[in-house]
Nucleic acid binder design. Structure first.
Lengths: 352, 352
DNA sequence: TTGTACGCGTTATCAG
DNA sequence: CTGATAACGCGTACAA
């Protein structure tokens, strides 16, 4: 009815702005802004007055407005394939902590292993005006044009774990090759002579590297790699079971399996037990990811830990560096973390 | 060097705004705005021209500015205790899908079971100017003043799963009591006569309800509840093991255990197997949450499924209703979902 | 149907 | 050290 009528002292129901503080104190908005952002040229007394009133009126800064003005928000966008299991939640945990320390909030989107959704996620994040984008690729992402927009806008872009194949990007990865080596080497040191490998999709860097580590270990022990011992799949539990059945038909029997994931090894374990084959005595097992369930199975599963939290932290650190030096983002910068092998009963040959 | 010099036609490197489109087309910003938001009073021809140029110049709407203008963003804030395990990821999945359908993006924050962090999360979300807040409480949240600010700002607030004890709030919950009943009743029907209960912290609604369901089932079978059969803990695997050891010392032996969570039952299972007690023949087991690992253990664990995705969807629906009718948010509105019992070997008495 | 002008809450620039 | 003023990009009464 009387839209223009100035409410004298009753604060507007939603939100109290810098203007309100300024009016109340009889100073300018500039002064208020400076007091709140701890600018150097501000009287100590004035500053205190402002801060006090701000607390009293429960002033909440409108970050949207600040972001609009500065063309930069304090939001960090993260795109991951999924958040089930142990790996991604833990990485996100690392991201959140490091981001929070630097004053950033985190938005998480899931691509559900679908490029289409990944594309939309990137759009969403750009719409939200994020200050940076952290991505782990969907399984079927083979083309990367949807990330061009991010770069074009000058927004720092960091890939982690699953990174583009042959692109000039900034990234944080685990030394998957070293992990594959450690696991396979361990099996060989336990006395295995014919170790099979349940490999993942080879267009993903991580699975290529894990296989490479497997091959390295064989070579280090003077063994020839054999076609029939390497089985490719999407590494589900089901596929692990199937692959294992296939391996059991070989004339020359195997005595160890290194899987590029834990689920695939879980499938293997269940199949072996179902057939009365003893683990690790007959066939020893080692997986990758150190999932929670590796400590539940019987026997418990040996697995490679991926330093999840560290990866998240490293990704944020890299983002912060890129944000500080905008022109640096066209460089290729790669952080490599060292994995750690967790040895459990599935791979330990009884002593004596 | 020449900061004020107007670049004639070269678009500014970052972002192309409505003003750019308007200038290029020789129309006003209003027209552009209307064309883009599909306003009714806009010439079809003009609209096409605008849309075409927008696509050509790769115009990206600045949602921040829109949000600032309208005092409302299209962001939905979610606070959960953690994202490990199955439950919360699945709920979030449900939230994301429903939110996306309604044109909202989702920010997820973890409280890590810490009220302090939960408080900060709420602040963060308010700073991000979210349009709504969806919360599942931290384990040690006993006071709820940090949510007052949300209400004061007129932002829809929906609790799910772990909700405040005696507060007038809008919420989505599972019928935990029915779940507790179903699981316990099933054990009793399988022939158990002395069923113990591994209970959770009673200040959390969900665990109170599950215990209530346990008691209901006992009563339905004409059994008296007994103090010594109910053991309270935080329901970790470790505590499940410990509680089980304690139960095994009872003079009058038990023949079944219903746990308010799956981890606690996992601990029980391992302890029982370690002591050579057969499951389910000697003692039958049933848990709650239908975690992934319930299908891995030997025997596999009977458990109550929580309809995670549905819960997420329901929470978003409730949010949308509140957003549509702002005055309704002080009502108490509760959506209750029905659980489903997944029966596996841990509770099945061999026939004959 | 289209255009003008203002304000959302903040910060940067410049002048005092 | 402080204040006035102009943006940031968008939506919307109001006028044409």
């Amino acid at each position: 009815m009387t839209p223009r009528k100035k409410q004298s002292s009753a604060p507007s129901p939603h939100a109290v702005s810098m203007a309100d503080l300024a009016r109340e104190l009889g100073v300018s908005m500039t002064t208020v802004s400076r007091a709140l952002s701890d600018h150097h040229s501000i009287g100590a007394a004035t500053k205190q007055r402002v801060l006090k009133l701000a607390k009293k009126l429960n002033y909440q800064p409108n970050h949207l407005a600040a972001a609009l003005r500065k063309g930069q928000s304090r939001l960090l966008g993260v795109v991951v394939p999924y958040i089930e299991g142990k790996f991604f939640p833990s990485v996100i945990q690392g991201i959140e902590q490091a981001a929070s320390k630097a004053g950033f909030s985190v938005i998480v989107c899931q691509s559900h292993e679908d490029v289409q959704l990944e594309r939309r996620n990137v759009e969403t994040l750009l719409h939200a005006q994020v200050a940076g984008v952290l991505v782990s690729l969907a399984r079927n992402t083979l083309e990367f044009h949807h990330f061009d927009k991010v770069r074009e806008r000058g927004i720092p872009l960091v890939f982690f774990d699953r990174i583009p194949a042959s692109e000039f990007v900034n990234s944080v990865v685990l030394d998957d090759r070293a992990g594959g080596f450690a696991a396979t080497n361990h099996l060989l040191e336990q006395g295995c002579r014919r170790v099979a490998h349940l490999a993942g999709p080879q267009h993903l860097n991580i699975y290529r590297q894990r296989q490479q580590g497997y091959l390295d270990a064989l070579a280090a022990h003077g063994l020839e790699p054999q076609q029939e011992l390497i089985i490719y799949s999407d590494m589900t539990q089901e596929e692990g079971a199937q692959a294992t059945r296939q391996l059991l038909t070989l004339a020359n029997p195997i005595d160890g399996i290194f899987g590029a994931g834990d689920s695939v090894i879980l499938g293997a374990l269940q199949t072996l037990k179902g057939q009365g084959i003893r683990v690790p005595r007959d066939i020893a097992l080692a997986g990758f990811s150190n999932e929670g369930f590796t400590a539940i199975t019987e026997p418990r599963l040996t697995s490679v830990d991926q330093r999840c939290e560290e990866m998240g932290e490293a990704a944020v650190r890299l983002f912060l560096e890129l944000a500080a030096a905008p022109e640096a983002q066209f460089q290729q910068r790669q952080v490599v973390l060292q994995p750690e092998l967790f040895i459990r009963e599935s791979s330990l040959q009884a002593v004596g």
